[in-house]
């Protein structure tokens, strides 16, 4: 009676840290991007991009503005159709997920709010559509520290407050995968610190997180793996913790890989 129970417990206990430590861990990928390309007329926004995210990992998605980060995220959540290749979450197209809001939370750019609607009502319209109870709206408002401003129209929000409201919307369904596009934009230093702590907490709960940024310092201390993309192509996959060369190592590498963009 005791033996099978111990045997069951052991691999389970090993699986979580293994999955978090190494993106290449076996098992179904939380996010799977393969040979993904997107062309808009003559412009190639994403070119033959391939990467997998293992469950429970925190990954940075780095690149200059216009490198193709946002386009990739839009294809992952079905807003844009790939020209070729595929972008899957939990092994499926986003639109084919049964209850997408509870599986994947995404925050795309800032400013996806009706300025004439209050922050709380913005979240309520989404919660009602996803059959998420009002109680959860209050929970996420507390989580992003917006409960005192939630009754006000978004028109009066600072950029940082809008970012936090977007984050609250992404967290509404308590999803296992978080896709965050430039979440630190517009946050003040205290806000950036708060975001970093929140991301660490969310990661510690075993969620898979992909966070894009063009500001390295924001993500270097949070992510296990950084995907660096430029001109729509993946140019490097690095583990910031394993880079030698001191605190500037990731920045040095990034700048050398994206040199012509920033020169």
């Amino acid at each position: 009676m005791n033996l099978p129970a111990r045997n069951l417990a052991a691999p389970d206990g090993q699986r979580r840290p293994a999955a978090r430590g190494a993106p290449a861990a076996s098992g179904p990928a939380a996010v799977s991007v393969a040979s993904l390309s997107k062309r808009y007329g003559a412009v190639t926004a994403v070119a033959d991009l391939t990467f997998d995210l293992a469950p429970g990992t925190v990954t940075g998605f780095l690149g200059p503005n216009g490198a193709g980060k946002s386009t990739t995220l839009r294809m992952l959540v079905g807003l844009a159709e790939p020209t070729s290749g595929h972008a899957l979450v939990l092994g499926r197209r986003y639109a084919d997920l049964d209850d997408p809001a509870r599986r994947v939370g995404a925050m795309l750019e800032s400013g996806d709010f009706d300025p004439g609607r209050s922050g709380r009502n913005h979240l309520r319209t989404l919660a009602v559509a996803a059959a998420i109870p009002d109680r959860r709206v209050e929970e996420v408002l507390g989580l992003v520290r917006l409960q005192d401003s939630a009754h006000r129209k978004v028109r009066g929000y600072s950029l940082g407050m809008r970012q936090r409201l977007g984050l609250a919307a992404a967290l509404l369904g308590d999803p296992e995968i978080l896709l965050l596009d430039e979440p630190a934009n517009g946050l003040d230093p205290a806000g950036v610190r708060w975001l970093r702590d929140l991301l660490r907490r969310l990661a510690a709960e075993g969620r898979t997180i992909l966070v894009s940024s063009h500001v390295l310092a924001e993500v270097a201390q949070t992510v296990q793996t950084a995907l660096i993309i430029n001109h729509g192509r993946l140019v490097a996959t690095v583990a910031p913790a394993q880079l030698t060369g001191g605190p500037d190592a990731l920045e040095d590498l990034y700048l050398s890989l994206t040199a012509e963009e920033t020169a």
């Binding site: 959540v77 079905g78 809001a101 009706d114």
Partner: peptide
């Protein structure tokens, strides 16, 4: 048009991708 103007069509379609 209000959803396209303010971008709320994105969160709307994230919740209901169909």
């Amino acid at each position: 048009t209000a959803e396209f103007r303010h971008g709320t069509i994105r969160p709307t379609l994230l919740v209901t991708p169909r």
